[in-house]
Amino acid sequence: MSTFTSSDGTIIHVREWLPAGRDSIGIVQIAHGMGEYAGRYAHFADRLADLGYAVYANDHRGHGHSIAGAPGDLGADGWNLLVEDLVALTKLVRDKHSGIPVVLFGHSLGSFAVQQYILDHSGLVDDVILCGTTAVDQLFARIADSGGDLLGLFNTRFQPTRTTADWLSRDEAQVDAYLTHPWCGFEIDPENMAALASAAADRLSKPTTVPTDLPIYVMVGDQDPLNDDLRLSDLLISRYRDAGLTDIPYRVYPGARHEILNEINRDEVEDDLIAWITRATD
């Protein structure tokens, strides 16, 4: 674990998984989702480190070890600062490991932050992975139509439900671990949720500043409620292609829900993802 100080003075905590006894062949930076923490990616990160990758994942402000107040409270202008924190971490790890490629991975809320990141800072990374992602503006439109009950909307399609988080995974042990952990299961504060919605409607829906040669790997479950039967992830892919991007593999896992790295077919998902990272960093 290491730390750095954000531009507003917030201490951001970073988990590191480094190759043992060898030089790193590439960097994978992980941006986790809402209401979770970086340590949940240890299984995936350990596999990457064993292959020679240096893996870094910060706990977002308001999350995990970076909680300074109430869980989910990102602070003033916190959404934009959360994205800025990802940029700052990339610069730090590039300085530490010069001359090797950087792959930026974002899941769910982390993928929304990555979508914003690459509008202005794509030159810092070589490849991008969007996991459990969606067309964010249309997701917020669905949430508004449902009366604003975000988590209730996500669980609706899995009735009768066992828990309030059945939408995450078919793996009951993973769902139960999520529900019992004090760093899981909350939303970000209303002010910054509104800031994300505004950014989604304005900038994220028009990705015209993303370089056309940036490889973006999109991976989702076909039962992920964020995507409304894949209509919204399909829309996201169309937007990037309309912006001129051509290297956009789109991997859909039948039956899988939102957290595909914690699904019953996790090994398959990780194998596919590692194969793409290896190709991308050759």
Rank of each mutant, 00 (worst) to 15 (best):
G123S: 13
L139Y: 15
I27L: 15
V125K: 00
K96E: 14
L151R: 02
V83C: 10
H121A: 14
D23R: 11
S169H: 04
L245K: 03
F112D: 01
A201V: 02
G255I: 02
H63F: 10
T161K: 06
G26R: 00
N262Y: 07
R203L: 11
D73N: 06
C131E: 12
E268L: 15
E36V: 10
E16M: 05
T212E: 15
L232C: 00
I248L: 15
D202I: 12
E16A: 12
D73L: 13
G132L: 10
S233M: 02
A38E: 09
V136S: 13
L168D: 00
L273F: 12
N155L: 10
P211N: 07
D145W: 03
N265R: 07
P249S: 06
P190K: 09
M1P: 04
Q116R: 06
R15D: 14
P190S: 14
A141N: 05
V103P: 06
Y253W: 09
D23P: 04
I118F: 11
R15V: 02
R157V: 03
R142I: 06
Q223N: 09
R40H: 10
A141S: 11
F105G: 01
A70F: 05
T208A: 15
S205T: 14
S111L: 01
L204M: 15
L273C: 12
M1K: 05
A200Q: 00
